[in-house]
């Protein structure tokens, strides 16, 4: 039951959805649609997994008063209070949105904007042309980079046109090749999951 049961669940759920797509029989289509809709509920539960896990970790830090425990306490207070607010009011309530817009959103945007600074450092220290492949990549990158912004047009109207040509022709051709290869890989991997040949998602449990 520890291995065979989940394999059977993956097989049945996957096969029913596939049959719903390939066979035009209403009972199968309806059952497939039901299984797809149910997945939304299971995925919704999964959204809380990360929060619960972090809550356990930080909770332990606070209870045992380990090093830097006040930060963990801040995490727990923020997590619990915001969760209660969201559940008792609504995510579109004025109070909930106030915190989202004035605390969460600025923090998140700022956190992600760090990447620009690291990229700037990388431009100075890491992007080296060491061989012809890096050279081709760099030259294309520079043309596309300039073509993206007004500066390219200001230098010469040819630059954005050439950048557009690169993106629409050689780049598109390469992306097509990657997409076809990647899609074949996705189909193969999905079939392996459905047929029970791919079981890596079962890692972590006993046995």
């Amino acid at each position: 039951m520890k291995r065979e049961g989940p394999i059977a669940v993956a097989f049945l759920s996957g096969m029913i959805v596939l049959c719903g797509y390939f066979f035009k029989a209403k009972p199968i289509i309806d059952l497939a649609a039901q299984i797809v809709r149910w997945r939304i509920i299971v995925a919704a539960f999964a959204l809380a997994l990360g929060g619960v896990n972090m809550f356990r970790l930080h909770g332990r830090v606070v209870v045992e008063k380990r090093k830097n425990w006040p930060y963990s306490a801040i995490f727990i207070i923020a997590f619990v209070a915001y969760f209660i607010l969201g559940v008792t009011k609504s995510p579109t309530s004025a109070q909930y949105m106030y915190i989202w817009q004035n605390v969460y959103q600025p923090a998140a945007s700022t956190m992600y904007s760090f990447t620009l600074f690291y990229m700037t450092s990388a431009c100075w220290r890491a992007f080296r042309i060491r061989n012809w492949q890096a050279g081709v990549m760099m030259v294309t990158g520079v043309v596309v980079l300039l073509g993206q912004v007004g500066l390219g047009s200001a230098i010469s109207p040819f630059i954005p046109k050439f950048a557009g040509w690169i993106v629409a022709n050689p780049n598109a051709a390469a992306i097509r090749a990657i997409t076809i290869g990647g899609s074949l890989g996705m189909v193969m991997m999905s079939m392996r999951v459905i047929l029970g040949l791919e079981r890596t998602y079962m890692a972590g449990g006993n046995d």
Binding site: I40, I41, A43, A44, F45, A46, L47, A48, G50, G51, V52, M54, F55, Y71, S72, I74, F75, I76, I77, A78, F79, V80, A81, Y82, F83, G86, V87, S90, P91, Y96, I99, W100, V103, Y104, A107, A108, M111
Partner: peptide, 22 residues
């Protein structure tokens, strides 16, 4: 402090949105 506050809010937001679906 800001980092832990952000982390708490972001995970709570995910959990709230999950709850609305459930």
């Amino acid at each position: 402090v800001c980092e832990h506050l952000y982390l708490g809010l972001s995970l709570a937001h995910l959990a709230v949105m999950g709850w609305t679906n459930v």
